[in-house]
Amino acid sequence: MAVSPPFWAVWTDVLWCLGIGLCIAAGRSALELLFGEGRFAGLILDLLSFAAAAVAVCGFAAELSASGTARWYMAAAMGTGALGWQITAAPVLRRGMHFLLKMLAMPLRWSEKRIAGPVKAWFCRKISGIVQRAKEHKRLKKRKKQKKMLQNAKRILYN
C-alpha cells in the first residue's frame, strides 16, 4: 500500500484534477455543439468523455501526482470540475451559440420574408391558374365527345 502524500500535495493534485475535468467537459461541450444533442451523439460523447477522464487520471497519476498512483480524490475532483463546467459555462455557451446562429440567419429570414415569400406566392398563384385552366379544358373536351352508338345485338355484322 502506498504512503499517503502530505496535505499540500493532495490539494495540488485536487486542483490539477479540477482543471482536467473542466477541460474534458469543455471538450465534450464543443463536440456537442459540433455534432448535435441527439441520443446517439450524447451516448458516444459520454463514452468518449469517460474514456478521456480515465486516461487523464491515470496519466496524471503516473506523471505529475505526488503519490504516483490514482486516488479516489483525483476522480472526484475531475467529476466536480466537469459538473462545474456543465452547471456554469455550458448553458452560457449554448445560449451564446444560439444567439450567434440567430444573428447569422437573420438576413436569410429577412430575404425569405421580403423576397422569396412573395415570389413563391406569385408562382403558386400562376401554377394553380394553369392547373385550373387545364382541368377546365379537360372537362370541356370530355363533354364535347358524344357517346358512340353501338350496333344492335341482333344486327351485328361480321366481315
Results as ranks from 00 to 15, higher is better:
37 E>P: 00
32 E>S: 14
89 A>S: 11
103 M>C: 07
90 A>D: 14
112 E>H: 04
105 A>C: 07
126 K>W: 13
87 I>M: 13
124 C>N: 14
12 T>D: 07
28 R>Y: 14
77 A>E: 03
22 L>G: 12
78 M>C: 03
82 A>P: 08
88 T>G: 11
32 E>C: 04
103 M>I: 09
88 T>S: 12
92 V>Y: 01
49 S>G: 15
67 S>R: 11
70 A>W: 01
111 S>D: 00
66 A>H: 13
69 T>K: 08
45 L>H: 07
20 I>F: 03
46 D>F: 12
111 S>V: 05
73 Y>C: 02
48 L>P: 02
108 L>C: 12
126 K>H: 10
80 T>H: 00
75 A>C: 03
68 G>E: 10
22 L>P: 05
74 M>E: 05
139 R>P: 01
59 G>S: 02
46 D>Q: 14
29 S>N: 09
101 L>G: 12
34 L>S: 04
47 L>Q: 10
110 W>T: 02
65 S>F: 11
77 A>I: 08
123 F>Y: 07
40 F>A: 15
119 V>D: 03
87 I>A: 14
117 G>Y: 05
46 D>W: 15
41 A>K: 03
28 R>D: 05
122 W>R: 06
38 G>F: 02
116 A>H: 12
98 H>K: 15
99 F>H: 11
120 K>M: 06
106 M>G: 10
130 I>G: 08
136 E>W: 02
25 A>C: 09
135 K>N: 05
127 I>P: 01
121 A>H: 13
131 V>R: 11
